[in-house]
Design a protein around this nucleic acid. Sequence first.
DNA 1: TTCCAGGGATATA
DNA 2: TATATCCATGGA
Length: 277
Amino acid sequence: MDYSILNNQIIVNDLSQFDIKQMLESGQVFRFSEEDGNYKIIAENVICHLKYEYDRAIISSSDIDFAIKYFDLDRDYAPIKQRLAAYPLMQTAIDYGKGIRILNQPPLETIVSFIISANNNIPRIKGILTRLCECLGEDFGEYRAFPTLEALTSEDAAFYRRIGAGYRAEYLVDTVRSIADGFDLNLYSVATPEARKRLMTLKGVGGKVADCILLFAYHKEDVFPMDTWCKRIYRDFSLPATKSCANMAHTLTTMFGDLSGYAQQYLFYYYRQNNII
DNA sequence: TTCCAGGGATATA
DNA sequence: TATATCCATGGA
């Protein structure tokens, strides 16, 4: 994609495949805020400021290389959208969310975030994560970093309940302990089925949460996370009826192949924003 | 008051 | 392997 670096800022020239609101509000990330058109995103211990200037987007970051990778800037989404447009329903969804990109988020916080996301709603997820970082994250003045593994493992279930995690508190305690005890987070070059199997050994990580982690942290493109919105999406494709999310995900990933993750993201955003019940 | 939210664990057959 | 039930919380 067309971007350049100037004075420690990233200038994104091609807004046909880069939209700040669409990237952040497509349900893949929770630690962001907006005020008067200025967006703040925090990932790990890095903060990024995003805004528009004329017909360009400007990214300021404490770590430029991190930001380039995080916002997936070295990927051209034009051919992806062109291939997807041949599928039913997709042209509408792509037109609606043409600036969506799939972020490359740090694995640990993606795992924690999506364990919290289970049977939960986005405003609450954001609140729980805000309190988590406020309590355990390193203080950088303007913002708090995401807590380190050491900080996460230093707390018990009572703490996670206090910040509002509810019954997911025990899952979090168990999972961060597993990671500290040697669960290998480096799944970038592990094939999707094996990586998925490993993630699902973590407490609080089932099929859907595993797929979110695979897509939003490891950029595995051959997954289709099935949530309540995606069940409606499945219905509208008039595919074989089934009650099983696993069956739906299998049918959809068979249909979309290595475009599954992208298809899911455009469709999720379109359905949720338009509240298609 | 009940229902729902980017579901998963567990028990049961 | 497939289905039923329980789980904290807060907003609608």
